[in-house]
């Protein structure tokens, strides 16, 4: 791991602080002054200690354009999640169990570990797919109803709509 510049450290520190503070407010679900002060101090100490651990992103994550794409991603993800559930429900209820399982692979263009993790989680929650492993930039996907074993086509089927948005965020 290369040494971090002061700018990177400051960016990570502020991003961590903002997210931990949001989490604290959700936990206590109050805006009383004493809670906010204690929470601010605690989250500041934690984010100071964990600059090296939470390595997802720096200050540019909080720009309005990226926040817009995050909300948009959340919408795409929610639609896919509901589709996935109707799909699973259909397969589980029908008496003949219409499945054709198999494992396919494809390559992604994402660079950072954190964005790969988000993509893998999203793939697990979308219709009929489950991430088994990520080796470098290759994803291995268990597919409940395999339509193609070709990596390129599998990529278009499974991950393209997510990756387009994720490339704009990270």
């Amino acid at each position: 791991m290369q040494a971090l510049t002061l700018n990177q450290k400051l960016g990570r520190f502020i991003v961590n602080w903002v997210f931990l503070m949001l989490l604290w407010i959700m936990f206590t679900s109050t805006f009383a002054a004493q809670e906010l002060i204690v929470g601010g101090l605690l989250t500041m100490i934690i984010s100071l200690l964990s600059i090296r651990l939470f390595t997802c992103c720096d200050l540019s994550l909080l720009s309005p354009v990226k926040i817009f794409w995050m909300v948009y991603y959340f919408g795409v993800f929610l639609v896919a999640l509901i589709q996935a559930n109707l799909d699973v429900a259909r397969r589980v209820i029908s008496p003949s169990l219409p499945i054709n399982p198999g494992v396919v692979k494809f390559k992604t263009k994402l660079k950072t570990n954190y964005s790969k993790m988000v993509l893998a989680n999203s793939i697990t929650l979308t219709p009929g797919t489950l991430t088994i492993d990520v080796v470098g930039d290759t994803f291995y996907i268990h597919w409940i109803d395999v339509q193609t074993t070709d990596p390129e086509k599998a990529f278009t089927e499974i991950a393209e709509s997510f990756e387009k948005v994720l490339l704009k965020i990270f």
Binding site: A89, R91, V92, L125, G128, L130, I132
Partner: peptide
């Protein structure tokens, strides 16, 4: 309920994980 039904009915562990994860999460 459907997630648990999937856990019960599916033939192997990967398909069980598919049903179990998605349906119980939503």
């Amino acid at each position: 309920f459907l997630g648990a039904l999937g856990i019960y009915r599916m033939p192997d562990i990967y398909n069980r994980l598919q049903a179990g994860t998605k349906a119980t999460t939503l």
